[in-house]
Write a protein that binds this DNA or RNA. Structure first.
Lengths: 117, 117
DNA sequence: CAAATATTTCCACGTTCATCGAAATGATGG
DNA sequence: CCATCATTTCGATGAACGTGGAAATATTTG
């Protein structure tokens, strides 16, 4: 049951090209996560700019930060994302076409496996 | 399969207090929709401000406008919202806790019935 | 401690966003 | 066609956002 402010914060955090891309990247990276530098390189965004965006995502509670020696590893917070989707689904469900059955094994990204890459 | 730009547009459209409230109101209003004035009053936002927000939601494809004599009736576009949720779900599904089973009949808002109000 | 590495914070800049009164546009009725 | 009602567009203003180089902050290594 996220409150409106949290929902708005999460939506706003994802409503930006680089942040959405970063979040998607982290979701695909799985629990292993990725260091800030790798994300910046993958996205082609300067470190300082990316740092700003990662801070936004962190503040929204969508990702988490954890230091691993020199690097700061970022990981997606699935629970937070599911809470957001759940909240949105609740408020979208008007009896009409509800419960989006997309993705989730359809073949989009069978992630979480390629952690040994 | 919304493209990134569409997803960002929709997220950005919902990431604002008054717009999220307006969208929720329209979802609950069902196919009947609501005239701009009624939304403005319900939300306690000046007409001109609300008009701006409704335009944003419309541009994002989340709501639709239809004139009914003097009033402009707005209705939520469930398909668009479901497409958004589907896209987000796809990119959130990392094997972990996927498919948000919240709402959808749980008792949140058995809407779509009270259209004869 | 000094050098090297990984990231963040600071700062200044231009852009976009949100607000709301006032004026303009559209539609209806007498 | 004039008055009225419903809504939007215009315009100005202040706040928040996105950007990226330079400097500052951790952390490991020699």
């Amino acid at each position: 049951m996220m409150d409106s402010a949290a929902v708005i914060g999460a939506l706003g955090a994802l409503a930006q090209e680089h942040r959405l891309a970063a979040f998607r990247l982290l979701v695909q990276a799985g629990d292993e996560g990725m260091p800030a530098g790798a994300i910046a390189e993958a996205l082609g965004v300067p470190n300082s700019s990316l740092s700003f965006h990662l801070a936004q995502l962190t503040r929204a509670g969508l990702i988490r930060q954890e230091r691993q020696s020199r690097s700061l590893i970022y990981t997606a917070d699935y629970a937070a994302m599911n809470a957001l989707l759940g909240d949105l689904t609740e408020n979208c469900c008007a009896g009409a076409a509800c419960a989006p059955d997309a993705g989730c094994g359809s073949g989009a990204a069978p992630v979480q496996e390629r952690k040994s890459a």
